[in-house]
Structure formats: C-alpha cells, structure tokens
Amino acid sequence: MNSTSAAKILLDVNRIGISFGGLKAVQEFSLHLPQGGLYGLIGPNGAGKTTVFNLLTGVYQADTGAIQLSGGNLFGKKPHQITAAGIARTFQNIRLFPSLSVLDNVRLAGQLHNRHGLWHTVLRSRRYHTAEKNLCDKASELLEVFDLQDRAHELASNLSYGHQRKLEIIRALATDPSVLLLDEPAAGLNPQEKKLLAGSIRDIRDRFGVAVLLIEHDMGLVMDICERIVVLDHGITICEGTPKEVQNDPQVITAYLGSGVPGEG
C-alpha cells in the first residue's frame, strides 16, 4: 500500500484550475491518488485547499483540466453524480442536517445506493421495506463501528463538536466511496482527540479500502499519517513529496514563514 508507483492510480487529477473574476484561485493542480493512498493537502490560509475539494466534488466547476476516477471522467459532473461515482467529503465548517437524527443523517447518505422509487414509497411495497431495512442495518452498523450507536436517535445538532466531526466522516463513508476527502477533520479537537483521530483515519483507510485525501493545519498529524503531501500556496502547487521532502523544501518553508516552521505544528 505504501509504495505509490506499484498501486493503481484511482483518482487522477490533471492540471485543473479555476478563477473567480480575475483571481486565479487554483492553477494547474494535479494529483495522482492511488488505491488506498493517504495523501495530505496543506498550505497557508487562503491557499486554495478547500477550493480544490470543491473542484473535485463538483461544487465549483473547474475551468480547465481533467478529473478521472478509475478511468471514468468526472470533469463537468454535478456534485451528486460525483458522490455516486465514489468521491465523498466532509466539510471544514460542519454541515450536518441539524434537525435529522444521527441515524437519519447516515441513512440519507446510505440511500444513494439503496434506491426504491416513489411508487414503492407511497404503496409501501415489499421492495420498500427491504430497501429501508437494508439501509437501516447498514447505517446502524456504521454507527456501531464508530461507537455512536447510543446516540443514534438524537438530533445531529445535539451532539458534541467532536461527535459531530465523527458523524460527518461516518456520513461520508455511508455513500460507499472509493475516495474520501477530509477537510480539516482535526479542527477544534483537543490533543487527545487528535491522537485518536490520527489512528482512526488510518483504520478507516484499511477497513473501508478507501483512498484518503486530507486537508489539515495540524502539521504533526499530517506528517505523521500522510504518505505524500501536496503543498499549495496562492493556488499554485509549490511542492509535492513525502513528508520528509516537504519539510525540507525551501519554498514550503518560505510559504509558512512567520507562522513557524512546518513540522513543529
């Protein structure tokens, strides 16, 4: 798993870019994420990291470039089509459905691959019952894996901050992704929780067989778990390599200058 060259490229992003008005938010961004890879995306505030996520998930449409997932084109696709194709994400500022229960948040994501039509719903056919039961089983199982089953019937908005972050990840996994994009999963967590998170990101990768791309400001965490790291500054990729290479890259150090040397997080 750890050697990039051996594994098959899953998510293949080539030179995508977008500008807002005159501002080139992201330019020529490329990424070759192998199956089961665990990559990091870092950069100072406003470097365009979240914009990259938005481009990959179709929230923004890239102006140029190509995005492929296992050979299938994703460029120009709508967000829900991209999710269906196998890219799931979490949000930097948590975006759960506050008035749905924890279980329903997960079920909503799970129903993507568990469809039954409108007529089955209205008539409550056998197919409806089977589908809803499968969905419920699957959601419950996921909650159990992450130890949230006790809170299943609580409103998502009533969870603690840490649990909400966790639920975001569970919800993303419920869409059966092959690539998981995590947008600052450690933001707002205490050191204890961060340590647990680092372990569970690796576990998620192994257990669900997903490739993970991670935006994170906590350098300790990124350097610890990521196999390769892409560094963005002003929308431009200034460096790509292993944690070690990145840490010693002069450009990266310049980009971060004033906010401390990366690696000391």
Binding site: V59, K78, F91, R95, L100, L108
Partner: peptide, 12 residues
C-alpha cells in the same frame, strides 16, 4: 437543511 451537504451525500 443544507443544499450543498445534500448534494455531497448524493442527493439530486
């Protein structure tokens, strides 16, 4: 509740 999150969960 949230159109962007809904899309991200595969809701059309």
């Amino acid at each position: 509740e949230d159109e962007i999150a809904a899309q991200a969960m595969g809701v059309n």
